[in-house]
Amino acid sequence: MLAHRIIPCLDVKDGRVVKGVRFINLRDAGNPVACARVYDRAGADELVFLDITASHENRKTMLRVAEKVAESIYIPFTVGGGIGTIQDIRLLLKAGCDKVSLNTSAVLRPEFIREASHRFGQQCIVVAIDAKKDGNNSWRVYTHGGRTPSRWNAIRWAKHAEKLGAGEILLTSMDRDGTKQGCDLELTRRISTAVSIPVIASGGVGKLEHFYNALVKGKADAVLAASVFHFGELSIRRVKTYLKKHGVLVR
């Protein structure tokens, strides 16, 4: 059967990893290729690079990063952040990345999901949802890196994104992100059961049981985490051993 995935996420700014791998003595913790290699060897099932470059010109550096990463690792990787056109996607896929993650551009113009999915295939279009609680069992979708509330309810948006051709949902709870208190399980479970495409849970993972909860109680297909891995608080192996021991199928 299909294994649950554990996915480290690296933030990239102007071609350099911010808060890179710190748990081993890496000569250059800002080098995306070096960080990718470390996680490839450490047993990561996939990698996500989030491009937080502000200026448009410097975005081209992400293409060179993608090219080098693609030549260095043999697991799939996704690039997200600031992708707004079919041409952006075409160049990233051509550079060697396997999937792209769309966020703001998709919320502003949902048809973009359909166009991208039709052009490149559903399997490489991830829709990232930043969601924040705005009531009892209700979450709002935010754009522009969590700064701008949209008109979308998160569950409705996830279903709509699926209908338009998203191949996967990357769900981040803004309330939990950075708190290390665990994923928002209610949000994760509701989205995961509302759609029939895979859901990656993110935001708030700090302890071993948070991975278990997101996968078993939240019914997520994968968990994405950043700092717990980068700073070596948890290793991917330890997470997988823990999950296996508790009856969760991992690779």
Binding site: M1, L2, A3, H4, R5, D45, E46, Q122, Q123, G167, E168, S196, I197, P198, V199, D221, A222, R251
Partner: peptide, 16 residues
């Protein structure tokens, strides 16, 4: 047959 098998489609990830 996603309804019948009750699993996510596409199958995405590592399988044996």
């Amino acid at each position: 047959p996603k309804k019948k098998i009750g699993l996510k489609v596409p199958q995405m990830g590592w399988n044996q």
